[in-house]
């Protein structure tokens, strides 16, 4: 098999093909990022630019159980960001929508 082709043989190939593309990253702690991927390594440490972070915060509602609290999204922008790999749950290539 020709492994030097641009085909996808293993999961990390998918990330390699996403370099210099806008990716979606899901993180621990109800956090999500979108940004342009510039570097990664085997720990899934990432370096991204033009990053927008979304944090999901559950506000408890008076008298309601925790699971029925209202959900707020807090957004934040960062121009260049290193993301430590141990917090990464998934990296998704640019959406084709």
């Amino acid at each position: 098999m020709d492994t030097s082709s641009a085909g996808i043989q293993e999961p990390f190939d998918l990330i390699r093909l996403s370099l210099n593309e806008r990716v979606f990253v899901k993180l621990r702690g109800d956090r999500e990022l979108t940004g342009v991927l510039h570097a990664y390594d085997g720990h899934m440490n990432l370096i991204m630019s033009a990053v927008e972070e979304t944090i999901m915060v559950v506000e408890p509602v008076e008298g309601a159980p925790h699971s029925q609290g209202s959900v707020n999204y807090v957004k934040r922008k960062m121009e260049m960001l290193f993301v430590r790999g141990d917090g990464v749950i998934l990296v998704s290539p640019p959406s084709r929508t």
Partner: peptide
């Protein structure tokens, strides 16, 4: 214990 490091954009050659 690091989650992110924000770095100056002009300090890296993408």
């Amino acid at each position: 214990v690091v989650r992110y490091v924000q770095i100056p954009a002009d300090a890296v050659d993408t």
